[in-house]
C-alpha cells in the first residue's frame, strides 16, 4: 500500500502545481501547456481510484480534444503581430475573497467529516469497462441517448456558428 500513497502524493503534487500555473501564469500558452499536465495528473488520480476507463477517456477527450481546441482558440484569437500573448487580471481582491470563502467552506466541511481510518481493503483490481458498458446500455440508456443527441446538436451548432459569415 505504500507505493499507492507515494504515487498519490506525486500525482496530486503535479496536478495542483500545474493548476496553479494555469491560473497564475501571465502567458496564455504557458497556461494551456500546464493544463496538459493537470489533465494527465487527474487521469493518474483516476487510475489510482481504480477507474481505468475514465482515465483513458480523460486522456483521449481532454488532452486530445479539448486542449487542442483551446490551443486553436488561442491561435485564432490573437493577431500574429501580437507576439506576447499576455493576459491581464481583473478584480483580484474580490476574487481572492470569494475563493477563500469557498476553499474555507470546503476545507472545513472535509475536516469536520474527516475519517481517520482509510478505506476498506480494496477488492482486487478488475477492468471497469465491461461493467460501465453494460450500465450505459441498461440502466443509463436514456441519458446515454440524450447525451448522443446533445453532442450531435452541440457540434453541428458550433461548426455552423464558427463559420466565417459571408457579407450579405
Amino acid at each position: 500500500m505504500e507505493l499507492f500513497d507515494i504515487a498519490f502524493f506525486v500525482f496530486a503534487f503535479i496536478t495542483v502545481v500545474s493548476a496553479f500555473i494555469v491560473v497564475f501564469s501571465k502567458s496564455v500558452i504557458y497556461s494551456a501547456f500546464s493544463l496538459l499536465f493537470t489533465f494527465f495528473g487527474v487521469a493518474a488520480l483516476y487510475v489510482l481510484l481504480h477507474a481505468d476507463f475514465i482515465a483513458v477517456t480523460q486522456v483521449l477527450i481532454y488532452v486530445g480534444g479539448i486542449l487542442v481546441l483551446m490551443l486553436f482558440g488561442v491561435m485564432l484569437t490573437n493577431k500574429i503581430v501580437n507576439v506576447e500573448l499576455k493576459t491581464g487580471t481583473l478584480h483580484t481582491i474580490p476574487a481572492l475573497l470569494l475563493v477563500s470563502v469557498v476553499a474555507g467552506t470546503l476545507g472545513g466541511l472535509f475536516y469536520s467529516t474527516w475519517k481517520g481510518d482509510v478505506a476498506p481493503p480494496p477488492p482486487p483490481f478488475e477492468s471497469t469497462t465491461k461493467t460501465l458498458g453494460e450500465m450505459l446500455m441498461t440502466s443509463y440508456l436514456l441519458p446515454f441517448e440524450i447525451a448522443s443527441v446533445l453532442l450531435l446538436v452541440a457540434l453541428m451548432g458550433a461548426a455552423m456558428f464558427a463559420r466565417r459569415r459571408t457579407k450579405t
Binding site: V16, F20, V23, T38, V42, V99, A103, L106
Partner: peptide
C-alpha cells in the same frame, strides 16, 4: 477542492 478553488 484545491482544483475547484483555483478554477473559480
Amino acid at each position: 477542492a484545491i482544483l475547484f478553488a483555483l478554477g473559480i
